[in-house]
Amino acid sequence: MIHVKTRASFGAVVAATALLTVAGCSATAPVDEAADKTSVTVENCGTESTFQLPIGNVVATSNAANIGTILRVGGLDRLAAVVLNTNNDAIMESMFGPGIADVPHLDGTITMETILGKQADLVVGSYSGLFKGASGVTPESLQSNNIDAYVISDSCRQSAAADSALGTMGPWDALRADVTNYGKLFGTEDTAAEALTELDSRLARLESAPDAADKPKVLIYDSGEEDLYTSGGNGAPNGIIDVAGGTNVFADVDNTWFKASWETVAKSEPDVIVIMDYKKSADEVQGKIDAIKSREGLRDLDAVKQNRFVVLPLAMFTSGFPNVYGAEELRAKIEEFGLAPSSGIDWTTAPSA
């Protein structure tokens, strides 16, 4: 839907940062290819949606890794505010270069007042995050305030029901959709095309690595005490685990993120446990490991006895461009644990051209 807006002219985007220190490849200075357009139409969650241009004030919420996608396609200068733990700034800058630390970071409940205060003309969110509507912010309420909404593609609902399961496409296809769409929305389609080339090159290298005869079973430990918040078959972690040479213990669950009982977790008998690091406190990760080691049914698992824990930032495992770097790190650890044949690949470097 087109919303009539009056916006100040937004000129060409200046160069996003150059060096991807983790990825080992260069980011190209984006050019505003939509400078002469007044609107653009993209497919978002199966619907053709039209957005007014230029887009100059983006509030990015719900998903840290998706902020990485925006950075990778050259959208740094479009960001008016982000929902991102400041402890993740260094991780983002190691992947996409400096700049994110200078963007205002939002904390606490994100309300319509928050968004209006940032003079947003686009809000990015997910149905597993902001667009659940707990604070009153939904795509519909944004539209009534003359603000466009973009739904992160991995959180698309399978039906119109508010309690619908999420996930209508594979995780890598969801990422490709966001990369392509952001390129169109920000007028940085050439940079988005370069990002897709990098993504496909890294995925091809991961898929070329030899698999074990029995792929190791991998559990995602996001959070939880009474039960475990983890990822099912539709989420980004499932795609990451798959290309890294493992199998998600909850791959058969038709959802993105969900809660599993500890009894179910123990019965899944994971070979590797990936601990999501929220970067909120110094003892967060050790607290999660200690909780596993003290829980009956889990402490006797071989994965626990042999300390086959992999600690990775949550910012690499929600849907976004950092996913492919997370997959490389997970593959390296699976090889280190002896659970997959050695690939002979240095996963800290970019694929050769």
Rank of each mutant, 00 (worst) to 15 (best):
T6Q: 14
V14A: 12
A16V: 09
T21G: 12
V22G: 14
A23K: 12
V31K: 11
A35C: 06
K37V: 00
K37Q: 15
E48D: 15
F51K: 09
I55A: 01
G56W: 02
A60K: 04
A64F: 14
I67A: 03
G68R: 01
G68K: 06
V73K: 04
L76A: 01
R78G: 00
L84K: 06
N87R: 06
D89K: 00
I91R: 13
G97D: 06
L106S: 06
E113L: 01
T114D: 03
G129Q: 04
L130D: 02
F131R: 01
A134C: 00
G136E: 05
T138Q: 07
E140C: 00
E140D: 12
I152R: 04
S153K: 03
S153T: 11
C156G: 06
Q158L: 07
A161Y: 01
A162H: 08
G167N: 04
M169I: 10
L175E: 11
L175Q: 08
R176A: 10
N181F: 03
L185V: 01
G187P: 06
T188I: 02
E189I: 02
T191H: 02
E198F: 11
R202K: 12
L203P: 09
R205V: 15
A209S: 13
A209Q: 10
P210Y: 09
A212L: 07
K217H: 11
K217L: 05
V218N: 04
S223G: 00
D227T: 14
L228N: 11
S231I: 07
G232N: 04
I240K: 05
I240W: 05
I241P: 09
S261Y: 06
E263W: 05
K267V: 08
V274W: 01
K279L: 14
K279Q: 15
D290M: 01
S294K: 15
K305Q: 15
N307K: 15
R308P: 06
F309H: 07
V310K: 05
P322R: 11
G326F: 04
G326C: 03
E329C: 08
L330A: 05
A340N: 14
P341E: 08
